[in-house]
Design a protein around this nucleic acid. Structure first.
Lengths: 121, 121, 121, 121
DNA sequence: GTGGTCTAGACCACT
DNA sequence: GTGGTCTAGACCACA
């Protein structure tokens, strides 16, 4: 559990958890079959509410990234490298669609966006 | 008032208003000195509460994009083209900072981001 | 009529008029017996509403600084220099009472206030 | 919650709240990390609307004096003593700028202002 | 006519 | 339980 939670962020905590764990799975940091810590323990470690952890785990399950076996724990699902890459790009593109429509609304061209991107990446 | 409100969006209405009008001002669609419609009328047109409109207008004022004269109306502030460009990039960069940290958390390199960006822009 | 009106100020225009003319009278810039311009003309010159000018003139009359003679005009009242000084200090102290209570609420000592005052006066 | 609201004051209630709490924070009466009462409770205690309290809290957040965690409450932000002093002087100077321009318009010199100030402070 | 303030009360998201 | 958003509607100050 290498998670950084910001309570000042405008993003809800459960979503921060979801995004970070998703990223770690799709980057390969958390391997297929890896068993996530039990909800209670994770809540203790991260100093957040059990409900919050549960919500994040549920979203992970709904996205097909983990698989819960009642009484045993939550396990990272099995993917091939190609699937991982595909899922990663899928999540990124979904996010990027919203981002770009924002940039476009300000009249930015693709080149302008890339230029700004290079500055801060 | 060329505004599109999405009630399904997760963004609050007042923020959608703020973003769209900001964009129109900084793109030059709404010129300096232009008088925005009175909040009551805007509320009627957009079919939202007066207070929701007011909240958006307040944020525009706080950002220095409009200035309000009680009893007269709300007017687009005066800026030079350079200021507009600077403000636009400032707003975009602020947004982009969050976007890129998301991409980074998935391990994307700058080149990968640009490649995906080119696909969907 | 040497008046500067700021429409961006948070102070209402009629009060800006009232304060500036009061100050000019009590400083001696507008002498006793001087006839203020008629309301309509002042409104034209200052590019504000007649109602706004009227409101300011009424406040001046209420404060005893001018005297209206129907059909003739508004005249600066007669004061001795001592009266002027007394009235000036009265108005200043009234304002200052509010100002200082604000400073005090932040825990500033008299010395701290004087120090800051010297910086910006 | 040691707040005094004056309904006769020309200042809006939310601003009175904002100023008094700002002062208490910057004076050190409310310490960093302190949890403000929930807006509903504060509204009850102060006998004003929830919205009025919220407006004041929002302005405190915008000024960086508190930070809000949805679902948990509003907490006094963390600053060093130097930051507190700097913020205090910043707020005071902003106010003082308006005050002094008023004094100046009546032709008062710095020495005269200080003299009057000593009398009533 | 304009915006500024305040009210009461509902519903939702997050913890 | 917390704050966040939105609603409808009243009253006042200003121009």
């Amino acid at each position: 559990m290498n998670i950084a939670i910001s309570s000042t962020s405008e993003k809800p905590i459960y979503q921060q958890l979801f995004e970070q764990i998703s990223a770690q799975i799709l980057k390969g940091e958390l391997e297929s079959g890896y068993c996530l810590p039990p909800i209670r323990q994770a809540a203790l470690e991260l100093r957040v509410s059990i409900i919050t952890v549960k919500k994040a785990w549920e979203e992970l399950e709904r996205s097909g990234l983990i698989h819960t076996i009642t009484g045993k724990g939550c396990f990272v699902a099995e993917f091939s490298s190609e699937e991982k890459l595909r899922l990663r790009n899928e999540m990124i593109l979904k996010q990027m669609a919203g981002d770009t429509s924002y940039y476009k609304s300000f009249g930015l061209t693709l080149d302008e966006v890339i230029e700004l991107l290079k500055k801060i990446y």
